[in-house]
Design a protein around this nucleic acid. Sequence first.
DNA 1: CGTACTGTTGACACAGCTCAAGACAAGTGG
DNA 2: CCACTTGTCTTGAGCTGTGTCAACAGTACG
Lengths: 244, 244
Amino acid sequence: MFASEAVRPAAASSSQPLAWPVIGTRRTMIGTSSGAENDVRALQQIGTKLRVSRGKTIFNEGDPAENAYKVVNGTVRLCKHMADGRRQIAQFAFPGDFVSFMEGSEHNFTAEAVTDVVLMCYPQRQIDQLGVQKPSVRDRFLTLMCQRVCDMQNLLMVLGRQTAKERVASFLLMLLERIGFEEDDILDVPMSRQDIADNLGLTIETVCRTLSDLKRAGVIDIPNQRQLQLLDVEALQSLAAGED
Amino acid sequence: MFASEAVRPAAASSSQPLAWPVIGTRRTMIGTSSGAENDVRALQQIGTKLRVSRGKTIFNEGDPAENAYKVVNGTVRLCKHMADGRRQIAQFAFPGDFVSFMEGSEHNFTAEAVTDVVLMCYPQRQIDQLGVQKPSVRDRFLTLMCQRVCDMQNLLMVLGRQTAKERVASFLLMLLERIGFEEDDILDVPMSRQDIADNLGLTIETVCRTLSDLKRAGVIDIPNQRQLQLLDVEALQSLAAGED
DNA sequence: CGTACTGTTGACACAGCTCAAGACAAGTGG
DNA sequence: CCACTTGTCTTGAGCTGTGTCAACAGTACG
């Protein structure tokens, strides 16, 4: 039962002045403590498990929004595609995150599996019903939606006004806040460099170069392609805040 | 009583393949027809009128979100500021638009008056109450919030992946969709070049140059600084879609 | 008719993009 | 276990779109 949430490590400890303000205990917002227990159970009853393998599309922009999803395991990207292949990733969804709740009648973005993914799949109609029956559930989703809007607004600032170095720093801090350290100060990076680039509005080369720069500056280390060691989180924070 | 909505012109007629998909009859979503009448009346009762003059701040990011607002007249910008003065405008709010409904306990952006503005001001607590009493009101706000998310996702694509020319074209089409033609093919531009630049993640100079380019290409004319004549909307649409 | 503000245009610089080559990693089949 | 292939990542060299800086033109207002 939502085991993925239990094993998730706490978010960064020393993270006050993040470019992406920390929003309460986001990771434990749903599925823990007190009155929420009932809601979780109710949700659980109407959900079915679904596996999607790396790179596969979960749903496309414009598809009728018949289902909503919760990520149980793995990472999902929410993105838009242009006719000529340009892509913008609006958001990554990690274990515990809800995708496409209360989105209207059509999906307005594409969801793709970044890694092999396990999802809970909830028929939209039943979610709506549950929302009517249990105002607490509805409030929860509303809160999540607000956080989503808030995250997107922060990303707008990143894309519109930050330099490459600032963007990468913001990204690393976002990852840290969302999935936390794997161990000590090692950060798992589930997505490819291309995915990072398409999230930050950069090219893959610029992302690589910027990571190398940060390594040379002693702010991070790159033990391997899917892991990063954050040596100086404060430096990242002042970078992301533009104090440079 | 919400007179501003009545006089608002219909959105562009020939606007199917917009970069910002047209979302139903957005402008008439609230405050017209059928069962909505009651909701409008209920809202009206808890609202008070408020005037804010050009350039003044309505509320700041981080302020406790005590009130929600509806723009009756004028234009409002919703933005974020960085410590060093960089600014990103996430959205413009035009007459009929709701601002800061269901945003959580703190405003997560700053709202400033682009022009002299008339607002309706609703205490957040009473809005919440109304939402509980009248599910239809709540649903309405939810729909609006979805549109807001959708708009922001489109803007993410603009900021992350479009060229200056594409961004300006996207902006003009957004304006056309939101406020429509003043007369024939004349478009009112209530905001300054700086505001446009801060919305599109460009500099004021690049915005000017790009408008001049579009003029030279015969796509628009610039009768004066606060009005634009759209001579070739289709050209703008293919520009915004990246077919170039 | 100044004064202040906003918008426009030009010349140049540079951050980030493009193109290209090579390094590394993960399979896959023998 | 080793070739071999394939895909991803990294680095270099040069180019270009957009930013920066500066001058000037409109426009509004007292």
